[in-house]
Computed example of a mutant assay.
Amino acid sequence: MNARILTVDDSASIRLTTKVTLSNAGYEITEAVHGAEGLEKAKSGQFDLIVTDLNMPVMDGLTMIEELRKLPAHTGVPIIFLTTESDADLKARAKAAGATGWLTKPFDPEHLVKIVKKVLGR
């Protein structure tokens, strides 16, 4: 069975690039356009990995992670930030909230696949 990945980003072009990249690598992708939608989709589905932006309308990625980590079913799901931010304090906050990794935009699609494979162990 292919790994199921939830991608959360308010940028249509980033969602498309991420979806094409990860779909071509054999992963099943579900998309959300902001943290609140991502949270709802995560609650209603079973995902092996979540890739999320940080800065989004309605609910940012950090808040989404904090909410997900309160739910027993989502405490161990790996979460990778894919964002334009590179501030060390933000990275520390994200790690404290439960983020597994951090990738800065613009990203190299091959590097994203490599990180996803490493995080998933497949």
Rank of each mutant, 00 (worst) to 15 (best):
A99S: 11
Y27N: 04
F107H: 05
R122F: 09
W102A: 05
G35E: 04
F107W: 07
G101D: 06
G26K: 09
A42L: 02
L103F: 03
A97C: 08
D48M: 07
L71C: 08
A88Y: 04
H34P: 14
A88H: 08
K70R: 13
H34W: 06
V20K: 15
T7F: 13
L112M: 12
L90I: 08
M1C: 08
A88M: 09
T30K: 07
K105G: 04
T104W: 01
L54Q: 04
I65C: 14
A12S: 12
A94K: 03
A42T: 00
S44R: 13
L90N: 11
A3K: 12
A36Y: 05
A12T: 13
T18L: 13
A97H: 10
N55C: 12
G101N: 10
E85A: 13
L68S: 03
K118N: 07
V20M: 12
L120D: 03
S86H: 11
T18A: 14
G38E: 00
N2D: 04
D87S: 13
E31D: 12
V8G: 13
M56W: 01
T75G: 03
Q46G: 08
R4V: 05
K95L: 03
V8S: 14
H74A: 08
L120S: 04
H34G: 14
T30F: 10
N24S: 15
E67V: 01
I80S: 02
